[in-house]
């Protein structure tokens, strides 16, 4: 009886060992893979061009940043129960919805050269003077792949989720301005245009920012 039991045990351990080894070698799915929820895959869909716009933006500075933003809202069900019964606890809810995002992004600054008018360019023989428009924030990029959801409690609609991302964008904007990104972008634009004009054959070059 004991011997039979030992044989069963050895047989079972051998089966488990073989399963484990084959799973490690990815020949058969491992135990955890069988009950693993598959990530949702989107279908291949075409892109559609909505608009084409001509630009002449001299991009001179970028601030690469990472911020954490959070948002907490009271759960409406909890509030309703509290209003009706006076009880502060809804057993089906933690009482609040919470979202914490870690967002990476880029604040891009530069000069819009389309705003450069002919009267801002003065040329005489080998001398040139150029008045550049002041630098501005051209765009702030936080794409879906730049966002990590650290905590998500409760229901968050797409609009509510995106509003939290907009707060991250505002935070990055403020941080970039506090680092004087526009002053540095102006200086960089003057340097680049000075170089370009010298390479274009001018020996006396004056590039300034026209505020």
């Amino acid at each position: 009886m004991l011997r039979q039991f030992r044989n069963y045990l050895v047989f079972l351990m051998a089966i488990l060992a073989i399963w484990f080894l084959l799973g490690k070698m990815k020949i058969i799915p491992s135990f955890s893979d069988i009950f693993k929820s598959k990530a949702v895959q989107i279908d291949e869909t075409p892109i559609l061009i909505k608009n084409i716009k001509e630009l002449a933006e001299l991009t001179t500075m970028v601030s690469i940043d990472e911020v954490v933003v959070d948002s907490i809202t009271a759960d409406p069900t909890t509030l309703a129960i509290k209003n009706i019964t006076g009880l502060s606890l809804n057993p089906f809810s933690s009482g609040y919805d919470q979202l914490v995002l870690v967002c990476k992004g880029r604040v891009i600054a530069g000069t819009d050269l389309l705003a450069l008018s002919p009267e801002n360019i003065y040329r005489k023989k080998d001398s040139v003077s150029l008045g550049l428009p002041p630098a501005r924030i051209l765009e702030i990029v936080i794409n879906p792949s730049d966002v990590e959801t650290f905590i998500e409690k409760g229901d968050w609609t797409t609009e509510a989720f995106e509003k939290v991302k907009i707060r991250a964008r505002e935070k990055m904007h403020a941080r970039a301005l506090s680092e004087d990104i526009l002053g540095k972008a102006n200086a960089r634009a003057r340097f680049l245009m000075d170089n370009f004009l010298r390479q274009s054959g001018f020996t006396k070059v004056n590039v300034y920012t026209k505020y």
Binding site: E54, L58, A176, R188
Partner: peptide, 18 residues
Amino acid sequence: LQLKELSELATVEYTITK
């Protein structure tokens, strides 16, 4: 936060929907 210098002249902007 990291500030980097660029020298890019962007000449076109496409708006795309998907």
